[in-house]
């Protein structure tokens, strides 16, 4: 019933009930896999055989696929076209006048898009199944500074409010006679009048808020406690350790392969 902070979609099963650190480590492991694997087929397999089933298990498959493709489609298209023509290579697939479309370029574009897809997917999986405040709480318990945790959580929370405030200020300026439609110059001028009040009001606000937070003990030295209980388990600890070893191994192998003289 409490509205979703950022992208989080609560579910009783799947990844959601796991400890935030487990999900973070999982995400980082998949990410390191994506940058270590040099064959686009393996990279796409990581997406299809690991991330998609995990999303299904967590009952977020719909939004997971929607967000992935919406963000990736423009990249995919432009990469496949541009790299195919301009990446250096020998194996010409077809030619358009003086331009040759090459297999090496296509391969590079696929690998790059695959990595983007996996990177994006792994991050999405984390965001969709994890409350950021809980993740930050877990990291704070492991030594992250409370200030940094606060900034991360509030930034995620503030972005949508910033947008609506922007609109409100835009409306107010328009009511005072500022023209916000029309030529590019006119719109640029409108933006010029929009940005300072937006920045100013958010700065003023954070100032008073920062002091109000201090008055509620934020930043006070000494032990802290937390309202939320993050449940962990021996099994998850083992999974995290294994993931970390796997990630390091993949990166190690990749580095060795790159460093080896041909």
């Amino acid at each position: 019933m409490s509205p979703a902070p950022s992208l989080y979609l609560p579910q009783p099963t799947g990844l959601q009930p796991l400890h935030p650190l487990t999900k973070l480590v999982l995400t980082l492991t998949v990410l390191s896999g994506a940058i270590s694997l040099a064959d686009p087929r393996y990279v796409f397999a990581t997406y299809g055989l690991i991330l998609v089933p995990l999303a299904g298990w967590s009952r977020i498959l719909g939004p997971f696929l929607r967000y992935s493709f919406r963000a990736l489609a423009p990249f995919l298209l432009s990469l496949v076209i541009i790299q195919g023509f301009f990446y250096p290579g020998e194996l010409v697939i077809f030619s358009l006048g003086p331009f040759h479309y090459k297999a090496e370029g296509l391969g590079f574009a696929l690998l790059f898009s695959g990595r983007l897809l996996v990177g994006l997917g792994a991050s999405l999986l984390l965001l969709l199944t994890t409350r950021m405040d809980h993740l930050m709480q877990a990291l704070t318990q492991r030594g992250l500074s409370a200030q940094i945790a606060y900034i991360v959580v509030t930034t995620l929370q503030i972005i949508p409010r910033f947008q609506s405030r922007g609109e409100a200020i835009f409306d107010a300026q328009r009511a005072r006679g500022l023209k916000t439609e029309g030529s590019l110059l006119r719109r640029a001028r409108a933006l010029f009048f929009l940005v300072p009040p937006l920045l100013f009001s958010s700065l003023m606000e954070t100032d008073a808020r920062a002091v109000a937070l201090e008055a509620r003990g934020f930043g006070k030295p000494g032990p802290k406690t937390s309202w939320a209980v993050l449940t962990d388990s021996g099994g998850q600890r083992i999974v995290r350790a294994l993931c970390a070893v796997a990630a390091l191994a993949m990166i190690g192998i990749r580095l060795a392969a790159v460093a080896r003289p041909r």
Partner: peptide, 30 residues
């Protein structure tokens, strides 16, 4: 103080958690 909006921490997602925020900072046992 007078302006209630700037007294909301912005880092908590329910009223319960918001009210608990100060207690967390002061280290009150859960």
């Amino acid at each position: 103080f007078q302006d209630p909006f700037s007294q909301i921490s912005g880092a908590r997602f329910s009223l319960e958690e918001e009210v608990a925020f100060g207690l967390e900072n002061l280290g009150l046992p859960r």
